[in-house]
Design a protein around this nucleic acid. Sequence first.
DNA 1: TAAAAACGTTTAATATAATTGACATTATGG
DNA 2: CCATAATGTCAATTATATTAAACGTTTTTA
Lengths: 182, 182
Amino acid sequence: MDIDVGAHLKAVRQMYGLSQRELAKRSGVTNGLISLIEQNRVSPSVSSLKKVLDGIPMALSDFFTFDPAGRPQVFFAQDELTDIGSGAVALRLVGSRLAKRSMSILHERYGAHADTGTEMLTHNGEEGGVVVRGRIELTVGGESRVLGPGDAYYFNSTMPHRFRNPAREECEIVSASSPPTF
Amino acid sequence: MDIDVGAHLKAVRQMYGLSQRELAKRSGVTNGLISLIEQNRVSPSVSSLKKVLDGIPMALSDFFTFDPAGRPQVFFAQDELTDIGSGAVALRLVGSRLAKRSMSILHERYGAHADTGTEMLTHNGEEGGVVVRGRIELTVGGESRVLGPGDAYYFNSTMPHRFRNPAREECEIVSASSPPTF
DNA sequence: TAAAAACGTTTAATATAATTGACATTATGG
DNA sequence: CCATAATGTCAATTATATTAAACGTTTTTA
């Protein structure tokens, strides 16, 4: 899944209704360079690509994550949810598992005393969520805390973390992680 | 908020325990180039930066969004939530409004017949959510649908969209959007 | 303690990005 | 219908990224 920088820039530029020369003037590079970049005849330095994007304006991070093609509409209700886990922890992924997404949104249910395990989880990105029902014990970076309905959390997923339901009552959470974990 | 490419690459490389020469060998560029990039004595072309990142491996989009500094732990409960809207639509942002995040996670409450307005919303990125309580009418790209508890949605935010509570009963949603809208 | 290997840095040669100024083509206006 | 300005492209020059091979320093190992 390699991004086509040239086509990408062209699409973004046109989406903003700018000509190569207009964008050149606004960004401080020459129109010729923009032409060459869009034809993939050169691979711009990140400094000049940044200049160009400043003229739009758009951040580098957005340029590399944004999909100008306008991916096909995803829009569904309960029937389109994907069940992932079936044990003590039940996960329902919002959205197709195949489609490219920038987040994973999950509807999680922790059965009585369910636990993600003593082996701490760690991965790139960030995650957060809101407790809808029941109680959950969240351990992040050595610190533990029990959250109830209406409570919420947000942390960097590179820090070792673990979820555990301390009660007999089922616990329900809506969470999101970026980049997607599913 | 301009990213320091050199320092950033160095931080990422060291985080993966790679020396300049190791990374050079794995990525197919010279160690000298990596040294120059890390000192910001050159601004790499995106093609060579991509080569370098492939050796880690890390995607360009992650490189420009990822914060290697290991931002201070964010981890809080109800007391740390930020109230944004106060009218018919009440929004609670999960996490500090100041901190750099890759997502906005919101706990939303729509009062009786609350509406985001006839002026359709449109912005970059993607968003999705799960309906926790009540009912919400979601219109995306001309198509409307009423969602109830357990139902969920996910769509590209560039498509014009609108939320409306068709009932007298309050509606509660947990949503996420990336990049962050708050 | 010396030899060897690894580390990041630097310099000169080379490859490539970026500018400049012109070109052909298509739209805009008098 | 011609003139004028806009569009994107291209060739030659200039600026800069990238390579290859060396350097000095630190760490490893015998």
